[in-house]
């Protein structure tokens, strides 16, 4: 998809193309990501490009949680991981809010998400991701989430979170997820991160000031509602 700034501070979507299982729909709230078929399933390889011209503003959300399930290449033969790569390019003073509903990785499924964001000077970004390992009562599958973020060609964030049954031993220990099944992170850049919020330490939330500018908020918990509330609390302190 791509968006450009139009007259009177408005933004015009000039390209919106997608196909199942991930469909893009324009809405009054911005662009919605809609799971247009079951899945994503193991073996799916999805890619999304988001281009924002200078001064363009775009919100991306979803109507429901994304459920990742194991796929089969043939009866009885599980297929490989579900892959989702997202590339976002923000022009000068552009603003992107990426706040989809949680991603649930069901037992037996493997999800690999690779996100690459390049921002020009002055761009503002809110990028929220919530990962849930398994549906309620399930142990859950395996997920790796990689974030690569540059601002004005300077590295800002390089982070890979690898959790779940097939992750290296210790992933759920006191150095890893700390036994929590819901992992939330929110990256704030530019105008979205211009004051440092005060958050009382609760042993499962970190508000991290990045060396190259920007804030990364990490929240771990046992329900997505609780994690989301803690992530959003940081943002509401700021606006």
């Amino acid at each position: 998809m791509s968006a450009v700034a139009a007259d009177a501070g408005r933004t015009r979507l000039d390209r919106l193309r997608s196909e199942a299982p991930l469909v893009l729909r324009p809405s009054p709230r911005g662009v919605m990501l809609v799971a247009g078929a079951g899945g994503p399933l193991g073996g799916d390889d999805l890619h999304l490009d988001v281009d924002l011209g200078a001064d363009a503003r775009l919100d991306v959300a979803s109507v429901a949680a994304t459920i990742v399930q194991r796929g089969f290449s043939a009866p009885g033969r599980p297929s490989g991981p579900a892959r989702f790569s997202i590339r976002a390019d923000l022009g000068e003073d552009a603003s992107l809010r990426w706040e989809p509903e949680p991603i649930v990785v069901c037992s037996g499924a493997t999800l690999q998400v690779h996100t690459s964001v390049r921002c020009a000077r002055g761009a503002a970004l809110v990028w929220r991701e919530i990962l849930v390992l398994g549906r309620l009562g399930e142990t859950g599958g395996t997920a790796s989430l990689t974030m690569v973020v540059d601002v004005a060609d300077r590295p800002v964030l390089r982070q890979t979170i690898w959790v779940g049954a097939a992750a290296p031993t210790g992933w759920d220990g006191a150095a890893g997820s700390g036994g929590h099944r819901v992992i939330g992170s929110m990256l704030l850049l530019g105008a979205a991160a211009d004051a440092l919020p005060r958050v009382e330490p609760d042993g499962a939330t970190a508000v991290l000031t990045l060396e190259a500018g920007g804030l990364l908020v990490t929240a771990l918990g046992d329900t997505s509602l609780n994690v989301r509330r803690r992530l959003d609390a940081v943002r509401s302190l700021r606006s």
């Binding site: 982070q159 690898w162 997820s177 970190a206 508000v207 991290l208 990490t218």
Partner: peptide
């Protein structure tokens, strides 16, 4: 270079 992250390590370090 790889970038594996220990989530609780971040929380522990800040606390």
């Amino acid at each position: 270079l790889p970038s594996p992250t220990g989530l609780m390590l971040d929380v522990l370090a800040e606390d």
